[in-house]
Structures are given as structure tokens and as C-alpha cells.
């Protein structure tokens, strides 16, 4: 009889062992490089902008003055108008996106049936894939004339236009995340509530929404982060005028749009260049804080249960 049990040295290593080691290092490298890249970006932005923060600018002026005149003979670097621009556009966008996306998520997760649900999910993911410049184009060429006609204003580019566009842009991703949060609520809850005679809406309102609270908050926060960081569509739809807005038809300029529009025209290392990087630091810190909060909120669920 042929021996089927070849005796192997106890320290024998096959191909699988080497492959395992190699893959472990490869995956480790991929994981670490992502972290290194983030840190690298942060270091780069800080290095370019921090000298300006220490030496040139008066922080009181930076945060307190609406005058952004970097190319004037006496340059002024007041970012208040830009901050107000970003905040107002993002705020309006969230007013539009939150009800729409939560409503859509509730419908898809709790009310729509099999094929309808799948079709809607695919459509929403398609919406999320529309490039932002296309949204900006829609803002310029579709929404702009509509706003002029409906509200009888001279220019249709402003907070309203950019807010609507940004809201429509943020809604799909918020819907997707919110829907995931709703689906993550165990079905046993729904079954229990239905067996007690709750209607579909009562189940949703009294059981599913409280159960998905954290995930829904995270969805909204990520939407806010998306709004803060969006550049091209806002640049195209907001009118790009530096001013503290008085109403929704006023043109504003966003932090992101300012960097995008001006960075190409500045001399590397100049005050203006550094000032733009300071805006970058501000954006980075704010979006980082928002994402971190969203992450902690989501983690809050798993800690408790």
C-alpha cells in the first residue's frame, strides 16, 4: 500500500505560508498608506498656510471682517463673507435635503416592496454618481432662468440656486446611508409591533425611527460634510460675489469656490497663496470634525447594544 501520510518536517513551509505573509504585508502597506496620505495632506496644507496664520493675518480680522480683497493694493483677508456663504448655502441645502432624503429612505426601507425597492435604490445610486459640474451646469442653465422668472429677480445665481443644487446633490448619498440605518433595525422589532396591531406608519414612527436614530444623525452629518466640501457646483450656482447675504436671492461665495477660483492666479508662497491655504485648513478642520462626530454617533449604537 502506498503511503498517503508523507512525513513532513515540523517547520515545513509551503507556498500558502509565503503567500499569506506576502498578502499580509501588502494589505498592511495599503492600509498604512491611506493613513499616511491623510496625514501628509494635513501636514502639507498646514505647512503652506500656517506661516500666514502666525505672521501676517490678524485672526480677529480673518474671522470678523467680510472684506476679502487679496489683490488690492492694501490686501485684506477677511473670510467672514466666505464663511457666511458656505454656511448659508449648506444650511439651505440641508433644509431641502434632510426631509427629502429621510422621506425617500423611509419609503424605500419601510413601504416599498421587492422590485420597486431595488429599482429605487439603483436610481438613487445613479443620482449620486452625477458629476458635480453637471449639477453646476443645471444650476446655471436651468435653475437660473427659472428663479429669475418665478421670483422676478435680476439674477438667479445665489443662495437659493446653490442651496437647491447642493441639496439635490447631497440627498442621494444621505438617502443611501439613512436607508442602511433603517434596514439595520432588527426585523423582530417590526414584527413585534405589527403583531400588536401597529400600522406601518406607527411601526416606522414609534419603533424604527427611534431604533435608527444614530444612523440617521450620521447620515445628516455626512450630508453636511458633503455640502461643506462641495466646490464646483457651488462655484457655478452661487454667483461668486463676496458679500454678507441679506436674503436667499443674494449672491454669495463659498470657501471652497474661493480656493478653486483663485489658487491658479497666485504666486506660490505669496500672502494670497498662503491665505487660500488657511481657508483650506479651516475647511479641513470643519469637515474632519463633522465626519468624526458622525463616526462617533454611529459608534454610539454599537457601544450601547
Amino acid at each position: 500500500m502506498r503511503s498517503t501520510t508523507q512525513t513532513q518536517a515540523p517547520d515545513a513551509r509551503g507556498v500558502a505560508w509565503y503567500l499569506d505573509k506576502a498578502m499580509a504585508y501588502l494589505v498592511f502597506g495599503a492600509g498604512v498608506s491611506a493613513i499616511l496620505l491623510i496625514v501628509g495632506i494635513f501636514v502639507f496644507i498646514t505647512k503652506e498656510g500656517v506661516g500666514f496664520v502666525w505672521d501676517t493675518v490678524d485672526l480677529g480680522q480673518f474671522f470678523g471682517s467680510p472684506a476679502w480683497r487679496p489683490t488690492s493694493d492694501t490686501p485684506q483677508y477677511g473670510a467672514l463673507a466666505l464663511i457666511a456663504g458656505t454656511a448659508s448655502v449648506t444650511g439651505l441645502a440641508m433644509l431641502i435635503a434632510v426631509p427629502f432624503s429621510l422621506g425617500a429612505a423611509i419609503y424605500i426601507a419601510e413601504f416599498a416592496g421587492g422590485t420597486q425597492r431595488e429599482a429605487l435604490k439603483i436610481l438613487i445610486e445613479l443620482l449620486a454618481a452625477i458629476p458635480s459640474v453637471v449639477w453646476g451646469f443645471i444650476g446655471l442653465s436651468v435653475l437660473n432662468p427659472l428663479i429669475i422668472e418665478w421670483f422676478d429677480v435680476p439674477v438667479g445665481l445665489g443662495i437659493l440656486n446653490a442651496g437647491v443644487i447642493l441639496g439635490l446633490m447631497a440627498a442621494p448619498i444621505m438617502t443611501t446611508i439613512a436607508e442602511d440605518a433603517l434596514r439595520a433595525v432588527p426585523d423582530g422589532y417590526r414584527e413585534a409591533a405589527e403583531a400588536m396591531g401597529a400600522t406601518r406608519w406607527q411601526v416606522t414612527w414609534r419603533v424604527v425611527l427611534p431604533g435608527a436614530k444614530n444612523g440617521l444623525t450620521a447620515a445628516i452629518l455626512l450630508g453636511v460634510g458633503r455640502g461643506f466640501g462641495e466646490t464646483m457646483a457651488v462655484l457655478m450656482a452661487s454667483g461668486h460675489a463676496v458679500q454678507l447675504p441679506d436674503g436667499v436671492f443674494d449672491s454669495v461665495r463659498a470657501l471652497t469656490a474661493t480656493i478653486a477660483a483663485e489658487l491658479g492666479e497666485t504666486a506660490v508662497g505669496s500672502d494670497h497663496y498662503q491665505a487660500l491655504f488657511t481657508l483650506g485648513i479651516l475647511l479641513f478642520v470643519v469637515t474632519f470634525a463633522i465626519n468624526l462626530t458622525a463616526d462617533l454617533v454611529v459608534r454610539g449604537i454599537s457601544n450601547k447594544d
Binding site: V185, P186, G188, Y189, E191, A192, A193, A195, M196, R206, V207, P210, G211
Partner: peptide, 12 residues
């Protein structure tokens, strides 16, 4: 009324 196999109190 119905009682299920696994206790399923609501998240309340």
C-alpha cells in the same frame, strides 16, 4: 396577542 420565540422587546 403574540409572544415570540426570542424575546423581542422594542428599543424603548
Amino acid at each position: 396577542g403574540m409572544v415570540f420565540q426570542r424575546p423581542n422587546p422594542l428599543p424603548l
